[in-house]
């Protein structure tokens, strides 16, 4: 096995360990938590808020291909997609399909 190949495997193992750790510790902590308790409600708030923080960061400070799109276009696409989501009675397929089309259209014009 080449050095590059074994490096990649190590990187994958480290990444998966770093990811599984939070999931594993979550199950360990869950054993003692009642679904009707205050601490459960607090964790529920934390789950939604950290997810919202992550999604907002993906849109405002994206990494990869999306960082090449102007931030104004990213906001317009997200807002239009949420409007489509509401107008299609909260169906997620239409806004996700249209978002890629709207983005390509706007990027071509601005």
């Amino acid at each position: 096995m080449s050095e590059m190949s074994s490096n990649i495997i190590l990187v994958i193992l480290v990444t998966s360990f770093a990811t599984y750790l939070s999931r594993f510790l979550g199950v360990v902590s869950s054993e003692k938590i009642d679904a009707k308790s205050k601490i459960f409600r607090w964790f529920n708030c934390l789950a939604y808020s950290t997810l919202a923080a992550l999604i907002a960061r993906m849109i405002v400070f994206p990494v990869g291909a999306l960082s090449e799109v102007d931030y104004l276009i990213r906001f317009i696409v997200i807002l239009l997609s949420i409007l489509i989501f509401y107008f299609t009675r909260k169906n997620v397929v239409y806004p996700t399909v249209f978002s890629a089309i709207i983005l390509t259209f706007l990027k071509g014009y601005f």
């Binding site: 190590l10 990187v11 480290v14 990444t15 360990f17 770093a18 990811t19 750790l21 939070s22 999931r23 510790l25 979550g26 199950v27 902590s29 869950s30 938590i33 009642d34 679904a35 459960f40 964790f43 529920n44 934390l46 789950a47 950290t50 997810l51 923080a53 992550l54």
Partner: peptide, 25 residues
């Protein structure tokens, strides 16, 4: 590898509250 571990752990730390808010159900 240490930097990769920390960067991935921090961005995926949201999985901890997500797990705690799902598993009791």
């Amino acid at each position: 590898l240490i930097n990769i571990f920390l960067a991935v752990w921090l961005v995926n730390a949201r999985l901890y509250p997500m797990t705690v808010s799902l598993m009791p159900l």
